Simulated assay, not measured.
Amino acid sequence: MTNRLVLVGPPGAGKGTQAARLSEELGIPHISTGDLFRAHIAQETELGRQVKEYLDSGQLVPDEVTNAMVRERLASPETAEGFLLDGFPRNVGQAEELAKMLSEADQELDAVVELKVDEEELVQRLLARGRNDDTEDVIRRRQQVYRDETAPLLEYYADRLVTIDGQGDIAEVTARVLDALKQRS
């Protein structure tokens, strides 16, 4: 059985933590767009230079650049048995591009795992990190942006969406995800 997965959830839901655990449990690579950006910048690739230019000027990296990085990464042999995408797709356009990438390789996405956490819990988690830019207003604005951007994405993936309660012990959340994925297969 393959595991071609997308992990979504609001800031503070524990995506990074769960992605690392699930990647290890399932024996598939964790592909984070943030990691891809940093790797390309460090290696000074053409895509990395483009990303750096956008980030240095305070702009969002355009979908076509992000899509190109993901396409390149998904073409690597280690993703043949599956992967866990974290931070991609962020919008329906990227989801459609991902579907096209997978279709070209005669593959499809197995599931989209949504980590759902109560907003007040998210705010408390992020405030507890103690970062300077993590004020309550900024955190609540990020949550709203997430909801606005992700709602259409969740609708797009309705047929393969697996919603998991992301509150509680880290190991319990991982177990919930794994159980839900087993039930789908």
Rank of each mutant, 00 (worst) to 15 (best):
T45M: 05
E46A: 08
R49T: 02
Q50E: 11
V51T: 12
V51A: 15
V51I: 13
K52W: 07
E53Q: 15
E53M: 13
E53F: 13
Y54W: 05
Y54C: 03
L55I: 14
L55D: 11
L55T: 12
D56E: 14
S57L: 14
S57Y: 12
G58Y: 14
G58E: 13
Q59G: 12
P62N: 03
P62V: 00
D63H: 06
E64K: 10
E64F: 12
T66W: 05
T66E: 09
N67I: 10
N67W: 02
A68S: 10
A68N: 06
M69K: 13
V70F: 15
V70E: 15
R71C: 06
L74Q: 07
A75I: 06
S76M: 09
S76K: 12
P77H: 14
G82A: 11
F83E: 00
L84P: 00
L84K: 00
L85K: 02
L85T: 04
L85E: 02
D86P: 03
P89G: 05
P89S: 06
P89F: 05
P89Y: 05
R90K: 13
V92H: 06
G93P: 02
G93T: 05
G93H: 03
Q94T: 04
Q94V: 03
Q94E: 08
A95C: 07
A95G: 03
A95R: 01
L98Q: 00
L98E: 01
M101V: 06
M101E: 12
L102P: 00
E104A: 15
E104D: 13
E104K: 11
A105M: 15
Q107H: 11
E108K: 14
E114M: 06
L115V: 02
K116Y: 01
V117A: 01
E119L: 04
E119T: 06
E120T: 10
Q124K: 15
